[in-house]
Amino acid sequence: MPVDVGPRAGPHPVPVTLTINGMRHDLTIEPRVTLLDALREYANLPGTKKGCDQGTCGACTVLVNGRRIDSCLTLAIMHTGARITTIEGLADGDRLHPMQAAFLEHDGFQCGYCTPGQILSAVALLAEKRPLDDASIREFMSGNICRCGAYKNIVDAVAAAGKQNV
């Protein structure tokens, strides 16, 4: 039987190279390390937040090749070769990304814990060209829970950034 699977990696730590915010990160991690833990614990990028660790809150949202996913339910080793964007990669030096600026402008947060995930999710929502009425924004932002209940202002921020055509 032909078995041309790649070599087995692990369970011990193995080299895993990730491209995060355009920078190469050579990590040595076990296959069981999630993308979220790789970012926070190994790549020194704690901007991505861990809320539930089970796909139910969206705090861990990142972009992989421009698409939003929950980084807690995927393994880092699955994403070698992909383009990963975290909240640390959105601003251009000191110039905020328009979505970040819109969240500031509209007070789209209180404690701020859900905010990195909200902002990345909102950036993806615009890239997906979803309609920008309130109902649609609420539906397509529903994967991001805000314990502080800042939803009203989050919706305003997304709508405003959308109008600027980010």
Binding site: D4, V5, P7, A9, P11, H12
Partner: peptide, 14 residues
């Protein structure tokens, strides 16, 4: 999570 080994392939028969 229990430790495990990981592999990938582009061949469905593999």
């Amino acid at each position: 999570m229990r430790p495990f080994a990981y592999t990938r392939t582009a061949s469905s028969s593999a």
